[in-house]
Amino acid sequence: MSGLTTKELLERFRVGDRRACAQIISFVENGAPEATLLLDELYPMMGRAYRIGVTGPPGAGKSTLVEKLAMECRRQGKKVGIVAVDPSSPFSGGAVLGDRVRMSSLFTDPEVYIRSMATRGSLGGLAGRTKEVCDILDAFGKDFIIVETVGVGQMELDIAEAADSTVVVLVPESGDAIQTLKAGLMEIGEVYCVNKSDREGADRMVMEIGTMLEMRAKNDGWMPPVVKTVATTGKGVEELFNKILAHRRYLEESNRLSERRRKVIRNEIERIIEERLREVFYHQPGVRKRLEEMVSDVEQRKVSPYQVADMLWKMYFGNEQRRV
């Protein structure tokens, strides 16, 4: 099946062939030349799925929680796509993607599709093509798409942008770290979840989160609820899912869902243009070479990086003044 044309691949995709879906995801993930065409073709089929981002510190039990959320969706007859993102090794570029270990009960359900992704080059952020992979699963007919990432660095901000609802998962022991968390995780959640809540300190954690959220700068009409769960037994998962649905209703009724998605579309167009500009720019004959040559001059403080940029800019745009 490896030698299929894009047309054949799309035909199979449309009849629900998981292998075709998997291969289209790979094309997109690898930035293959076929990718743009495939995404164009699938575009009309997208926009129906609801996207849930799940993030939190390592060891919070995210994968198990995602498994249980997916089971809850299935119980309600909904189809689910899961994208589990793990960091690539900065040294080798390889990765061990182990989130599936916690999701094995979903493996043979034909209405659940799981894809593990490595962040690859993207600097500490979400895997470069995560959004597109969600788009493809959306087009594949999934009702819910759950994206799981480790909440560190840039990733949590990216996920908040790519998801319709962002769930932040914490554990009772996160209490001590909450002060340092507030800059990141405490800003982005729309639903908070205290997992492993059968452990000591769960109620205190719930209260602390509540306090933090009241102080949060902008809640624009939505006060994020805090739910207690024990993912290993499934306790509280139904309630968590209901809170996510409540957030969805809020977004839809206040027209914010469309607002958000328009923003995402705008960002995406900008990103595509930026990517192309970058590509075109660096593909100019001589630009890369000249840049390399100038590095040692900068190193020896003969010129500043800005001056080099100006010089390269002129190679492309001529004399137009672009320095800001």
Binding site: S92, A95, L97, V101
Partner: peptide, 29 residues
Amino acid sequence: ALRDAGFEVIYTGLHQTPEMIAEAAIQED
């Protein structure tokens, strides 16, 4: 070792049936 060689490894854990393995192989391409 495969990760250190730069590959992406999907690890499915223990106690897998052949059906689970084949399905995971396909979805993960």
